[in-house]
């Protein structure tokens, strides 16, 4: 048997296991940040009882969710009802596979990583739609339909804005994209319009306020999650926060130089030190953007469904098209 293949398979298994394990603490940290930052914005303390600064609050929540009753409504479609949380969760976990944490710390260094990422992330809409349908609940149904409409609409400007980046860098591999940014400067300078489109569309894609139409607690109770309880609900909840982490991670990889430090020195660190240094910068930048998303949630009210759709099709899509056209023309003319 080919020893390289065996090593490859083992590495893949190890990497996927690590990524799956990583989703749990990631979700905990993001939830904790949300609790604390929103508490700050609202002039209250937030969790401060369990552990120092209440930092184990979300862990305790996780255990609580595990211990809760797992209830399936009588009229629900059992097979799809139980499958839906997994679909959403796995979409988030699988898209984490290509996230470039640091040189040498990418679970799967894929040559079409960007394509893979958007393909897999889009799968979560199937899970939400299925959850909405299988729950046999009108709020869930409306929420599921909203999620389908919203995510399908926003996927287009989201992907188109990234095409500009890809055209400029000439690669679909995250590692090479970041190497390109090390040489030419962060993509932020080259593609500011794409950055704006990507940021807005990514918030909509992961159902964050002000685009959290899918859950919309004041209208649809909890959208597709209304009938879910216990760990099935926990998976949706986890997937949501993991998706926030992933989107911030992808945002900084595409536009803010990924694992690169904001200054050019040390130019390149090799080996283990380089990995640690890269991971450090990756997490600092990612959590800055998570904090921004959380602050947005504390500040803004929710937009309405028609305003949301109007923005995707009337503003973001044409803007992304023009951006792509200009970028492609510039690449052709200036031979970038």
């Amino acid at each position: 048997m080919n020893i390289d293949l065996l090593i490859g398979v083992l590495r893949f298994l190890l990497a996927t296991t690590l990524i799956l394990l990583l989703t749990v603490p990631t979700a905990f940290v993001v939830i904790q940040m949300e609790l604390k930052i929103i508490a700050g914005a609202q002039l209250r303390y937030g969790p401060n009882r369990i552990g120092p600064w209440g930092m184990f609050q979300s862990t305790i929540h996780g255990f609580k969710v595990l211990a809760k009753e797992d209830h399936i409504p009588d009229q629900a479609d059992r097979a799809t009802f139980t499958l839906a949380p997994w679909m959403v969760y796995m979409a988030a976990a699988m898209s984490m596979l290509v996230i470039p944490f640091a040189p040498g710390a990418i679970a799967v260094d894929f040559n079409i990583g960007i394509v893979y990422f958007f393909a897999v992330l889009g799968l979560s809409v199937v899970g939400l739609l299925v959850a909405g349908w299988a729950s046999y609940n009108k709020y869930s149904l409306l929420g599921g339909l909203r999620s389908a409409a919203q995510m399908v609409s926003y996927e287009i400007p989201l992907t188109l804005s990234v095409v500009g980046v890809v055209v400029l860098a000439g690669t679909l591999n995250f590692r090479e994209l970041i190497e390109w940014q090390r040489v030419h400067g962060w993509m932020l300078i080259w593609q500011p319009v794409a950055l704006v489109i990507f940021y807005v569309a990514s918030l909509a894609e992961i159902n964050r306020t002000p685009f959290d139409m899918v859950e919309a607690d004041s209208e649809l109770v909890a959208g597709p999650f209304t009938e879910y309880s216990g760990m099935r609900f926990g998976f949706f909840f986890f997937a949501e926060y993991v998706a926030l982490f992933i989107m911030s991670g992808i945002l900084i990889s595409l536009f803010f130089g990924g694992w690169l430090a904001p200054w050019p020195f040390p130019d390149q660190l090799d080996g283990f030190i380089g990995t640690i240094y890269g991971v450090l910068w990756f997490f600092i930048k990612t959590y800055i953007f998570i904090a921004v998303a959380v602050l947005l949630r504390a500040t803004l009210v929710r937009v309405r469904v028609d305003q949301l759709m109007g923005m995707a099709w009337k503003v973001l899509l044409p803007l992304a098209m023009v951006n792509l056209l200009v970028t492609a023309a510039a690449v052709l003319v200036f031979k970038l």
Binding site: I38, A41, Q42, L43, R44, T209, P210, D212, A216, D217, S218, R297, A298, T299, L300, V301, R302
Partner: peptide, 16 residues
């Protein structure tokens, strides 16, 4: 009013 549109902060200011 804000809470019914998904804004979670003004209600806390109101309660203060």
């Amino acid at each position: 009013l804000a809470l019914d549109m998904g804004g979670i902060t003004p209600i806390l200011y109101g309660f203060i």
